[in-house]
Design a protein around this nucleic acid. Structure first.
Lengths: 212, 212
DNA sequence: CTATGGTATGAGGAATCCCTCGCTTTCTGG
DNA sequence: CCAGAAAGCGAGGGATTCCTCATACCATAG
């Protein structure tokens, strides 16, 4: 397994629309193959076969194997952000903790439940190029900013350091959902409840000293 | 990379004590190599070279590459448990939350700070055989049991479901430390403080309704 | 219909990798 | 010092993998 050519850049820019479909076929096939075989055994040959194409065709759309992984991973990050945004869109503003927190956690958890094996391959087993890590952190910063806004909007909350608290909230949701994905002990509702309880307690305790 | 012989069982039982040292040399070398090159590029040839041995010798002590990984991973789990036990040993019983919680978190986090790259290779990048997962869960159950005892001992706490709370505590420590290991944003003290704050708030809120 | 260029093919080159096995060196007990 | 056993050696077999490239198909514009 020698050459490993230039980084992420489609080898061919689509001209006919057949091309766009083919690209999608490859990505869908790759997702299935990686989920089933893992990073190492997720061969480009196998991907081509699953997409009913020849290897050569695959390499007309992606410069190398890693770029397929990267594309898949970036797409997942975007989907996550979109899913959470969609969940929040259904909630009236200003929202209270008990409104938006369960909805957000549930949406995020649900998204990660779909294909845990693929998720593990994309974000744990495979090498994570700087570009992916950067996008990941950016997504987290965005999430933290959004959470901070929600925290500030809540009239029942009076936090001394909403920015820091928001980062903790995001970190907790993120890492507990991931942990749950890689080893499902309980059902998803239990998980959601536990995360919500944890964060509600945390945020309540983090308030400015009230009266007294 | 074809054959992948039988599972984890030393090919040769040590007779001379030179042998014991060699085995250690291999494990030490493997740890360095895996940390530096990752799972895929962490070649058995490279491990042999780092241990100043020939591949043949390596295969006299381990039946295959994966068994080296497994040995390293199991050792790490044992070390973790031992480190936490050691940290708790320094604390008088019965201990209050603010005594044992920071010490435990700090000990656990410290252990994982040593070699984050190796840790990632062992527990994320590499395939995790059922045996490893089983031991991992067992270690977590043990930890949860220990935490439950501590929670029950604390005179200031009166929890309705100490067992469940203990599992949450372990899960939070576990996953937040791991998250931190794979992307160090802040320093370790900040992390420890935040986890402790989080859990203290959680446990306070989880108490039986006190007086009123 | 034909020319142009986008799209698809798949055998095979080059690079590794895991592990074996016949052999040598080193140790130990008598 | 010697014989047998333990420990160590390392070239190479067999298996895979990633990716290229010369070739062929096919869609559309003119």
């Amino acid at each position: 397994m020698p050459p490993r050519s230039s980084p992420h850049q489609p080898r061919k820019t689509p001209q006919q629309q057949r091309s766009w479909q083919t690209r999608q076929r490859i990505l869908d096939a790759a997702a299935r193959v990686f989920a089933d075989y893992g990073h190492a055994a997720g061969t480009t040959d196998r991907i081509a076969e699953a997409a009913r194409l020849s290897v050569g065709s695959v390499y007309q759309y992606f410069p190398n194997k890693d770029s397929i992984l990267l594309t898949l991973a970036l797409a997942h990050i975007d989907e996550s952000a979109a899913a959470v945004r969609a969940a929040l869109a259904d909630i009236p503003t200003p929202a209270t903790l008990t409104q938006w927190l369960p909805a957000t956690v549930a949406a995020y958890a649900d998204l990660h439940t779909r294909d845990p094996r693929l998720h593990r391959v994309l974000f744990e087993e495979s090498p994570r190029p700087p570009e992916l890590l950067a996008r990941f952190r950016q997504a987290e910063r965005d999430a933290a900013d959004a959470v901070e806004q929600l925290l500030r909007q809540d009239p029942a909350l009076d936090l001394a350091e909403p920015a820091r608290n928001a980062r903790v909230v995001v970190a907790v949701i993120e890492s507990l959902v991931h942990r749950w994905v890689s080893q499902q002990p309980d059902d998803i509702d239990t998980l959601t409840t536990e995360i919500v309880d944890l964060l509600v307690a945390y945020l309540s305790a983090a308030q400015r000293p009230p009266r007294r």
